[in-house]
């Protein structure tokens, strides 16, 4: 692998999208050619700067679900759905316990 090929593969090397054999070849080439370190530094700085600019994307288009004839997604994030279910179950248990306590007192 010559230096130009290594430089061309650096973006895929740092994003982890090279196969193991190519990644190993790039690592060896970098170890044997210190002059490529400037290219590696540039690749890492560009990657870091672009990644720092990324923001959360907007929600998936609901029109797509409507087009597919399905009910649109719940507005509640999936990460909270489990918590809400747990709260509902807890509310059910609490109200049952109160009813039992009232019955006990009443008796």
């Amino acid at each position: 692998m010559n230096k130009d090929q290594v430089i061309d593969l650096l973006p895929q090397f740092i994003t982890g999208s090279l196969g193991p054999e190519e990644a190993l070849a790039v690592s060896r080439a970098l170890a044997n050619a210190p002059e490529l370190m400037a290219d590696l530094r540039l690749a890492l700085r560009l990657h870091d700067t672009f990644q720092a600019e990324l923001t959360a994307p907007p929600p998936f288009p609901q029109a797509l679900y409507q087009e597919a004839g399905q009910r649109p997604h719940s507005l509640i994030p999936s990460s909270l759905r489990g918590s809400i279910k747990t709260l509902r179950q807890a509310r059910g248990i609490t109200s049952s316990a109160i009813k039992m306590a009232l019955n006990f007192i009443g008796n």
Partner: peptide, 11 residues
């Protein structure tokens, strides 16, 4: 540069 260095696309 974004496509290559951020997203890892080949040339």
């Amino acid at each position: 540069l974004y496509l290559v260095y951020s997203e890892g696309f080949t040339q």
